[in-house]
């Protein structure tokens, strides 16, 4: 590994560590994500739990609700990644000191770990509370990993774009729609497949391609969005 690459990775790691250190001291995103996930999880399990929906219907409906819970939990916490930098005026120091691509990757890595942690807690609880049976657990694990990455990457990119805007909340929803819609269509379809025992087909490679595309787009767009 060249010295430049090593320094770049060290920068990205520094951003990642800083994000988690600040998060552990304020617990803003953790509390928001946990509260939203818990509330929606309880509501869904009460309404569509073991007695609420037939097995055939459950395989069709419950994967959709799982990804809606994950999407809205992420949307409630992740946009803060860049918005808070602008609101607390730390963005100026970051602009002067950080390599934009390393900053983006550090924030993305933080978002990814947050989403994966959310999935680790929410998914088993959801499966138990709704009695959703999963025939292909490895496919579900793959979908959660790839889908979680896509959620984190898409949200980080949109969060960077909206950070300097005035109506951040509305803009996040508007911009997230075209970015995250293909991801959600794919993840829901694959989660249904994992529940029913279907093969992944081309959907999983398409999901991986989506992840790669959002990452490349983020790395290319972020320096332009971040700096004047």
């Amino acid at each position: 590994m060249s010295r430049d690459t090593s320094s770049w990775a060290s920068e990205a790691a520094a951003v990642f560590v800083k994000e988690w250190r600040c998060e552990f001291r304020t617990r803003y995103a953790l509390n928001t994500l946990a509260l939203f996930a818990f509330t929606t999880l309880v509501v869904v399990s009460f309404s569509l739990g073991p007695m609420g929906v037939a097995r055939a219907q459950g395989t069709a409906v419950l994967p959709v609700l799982l990804w809606i819970i994950l999407l809205f939990s992420v949307a409630a916490g992740l946009p803060r990644a860049f918005v808070q930098e602008e609101e607390t005026h730390t963005a100026t120091a970051l602009r002067l000191a950080a390599t934009p691509s390393a900053l983006f990757c550090g924030k993305l890595l933080y978002g990814l770990t947050l989403v994966l942690a959310l999935e680790v807690f929410v998914t088993p609880a959801y499966l138990i509370m709704t009695s959703l049976e999963v025939t292909s657990p490895w496919l579900l694990a793959g979908v959660l990993a790839a889908g979680g990455y896509g959620l984190a990457a898409g949200s980080t990119l949109v969060a960077a774009i909206i950070a300097q805007a005035r109506s951040k909340g509305a803009l996040f929803s508007v911009l997230s729609f075209p970015v995250l819609l293909p991801l959600l269509v794919l993840t829901v379809e694959l989660t249904r497949g994992a529940a029913a025992g279907d093969a992944a087909g081309v959907s999983l490679p398409v999901l991986l391609l989506y992840d790669a595309s959002v990452t490349v787009a983020g790395l290319m767009l972020f320096p332009v969005v971040w700096n004047p």
Binding site: K18, R21, C22, R25, T26, T88, H89, T90, T92, A93, L96
Partner: peptide
Amino acid sequence: VGVVAPDLAFYEEL
């Protein structure tokens, strides 16, 4: 460059 400016802020949690 090295910058000192009134609007330069740092992480209050750190």
